[in-house]
Design a protein around this nucleic acid. Structure first.
Lengths: 149, 149
DNA sequence: TATTGTTATACTCTATAACTATA
DNA sequence: TATAGTTATAGAGTATAACAATA
């Protein structure tokens, strides 16, 4: 068993390659963002609020494909940590903005994500990166992406 | 908020594209394999045992990046379902083979996975699919992939 | 001493149902 | 009637510690 050569008819499947590549890259980002005690999804939320001040947590959920119930603890944690301000605008929703320290964290996330991307870009230098992005975007655009309301 | 145009500075990140593409493709495979009441990981295990008769569950775990503790319920479920035979070879490990119905299930999985891949191949026709595979394999080969012993 | 299989456990991620308040 | 936020809960997926039997 251990001494035998195992062959892997699954390794050539596009879906499996995608899953393993995604997993490797997410693990790297998780390690990198661990330096500032943020998870990838939390870093992403800071970036998105920075780019879309006064958006709601439902807006973020729609962008990220995360159901509104699962947004609650995410926004709550970032808020308790002093990174977010929630100002009622609607009576039922809150406009989200970054606090001073939230903006500082966002800047660090951006820097960490840039370095993370650069590490992987070096791996695939010589490949058609633009084509890779196009192909991934086409695949990602497939429905699935119909998260719970 | 809802009427505003939200912009998404994260959508251009390679890691995010990978994650969304992987998620979309896994969801599609999950739906497709749902027809025979198997999850992607279970279908994959049937394929791998078919290609590697007499392998152990630890062998499979190493191939898939799944820790040995988490292999237990997977193999147990497929075995209870009558898809696997476990024959002791070692005193401490079992040689896994497909039963008649396991082999039949494996054939169906293969067919379903072929159709699933074909659906997505059509999406990216015209793109450099070989280059895509190469890039994904390079990314997937990054460590991470150091699962618990 | 290292490996295989196992149990128990815990944490994250994701999904559903049900509720309140508001538009 | 639809939407925003919330709570509670359940199911995957993944991780660690600890143990017994075997190599």
């Amino acid at each position: 068993m251990t001494s035998e050569i195992l062959h892997d008819p699954i390794a050539s499947r596009l879906g499996y390659l995608l899953r393993r590549a995604s997993s490797a890259m997410m693990a790297d980002l998780g390690r990198a963002l661990g330096e500032i005690a943020l998870r990838p999804v939390e870093g992403t939320i800071l970036i998105l609020i920075g780019a879309n001040p006064d958006c709601t947590q439902s807006d973020l959920g729609r962008m990220l494909g995360i159901g509104r119930t699962n947004m609650v603890p995410l926004i709550s944690a970032l808020s308790k940590r002093g990174y977010l301000d929630k100002s009622p605008v609607d009576g039922r929703s809150f406009a989200l903005t970054l606090t001073k320290s939230g903006e500082e964290a966002r800047r660090q996330v951006d820097k960490i994500m840039d370095a993370h991307e650069e590490r992987f870009a070096r791996l695939i230098v010589g490949q058609d990166v633009a084509g890779l992005r196009t192909a991934l975007a086409l695949i990602a655009a497939q429905p699935e992406d119909v998260p719970p309301s």
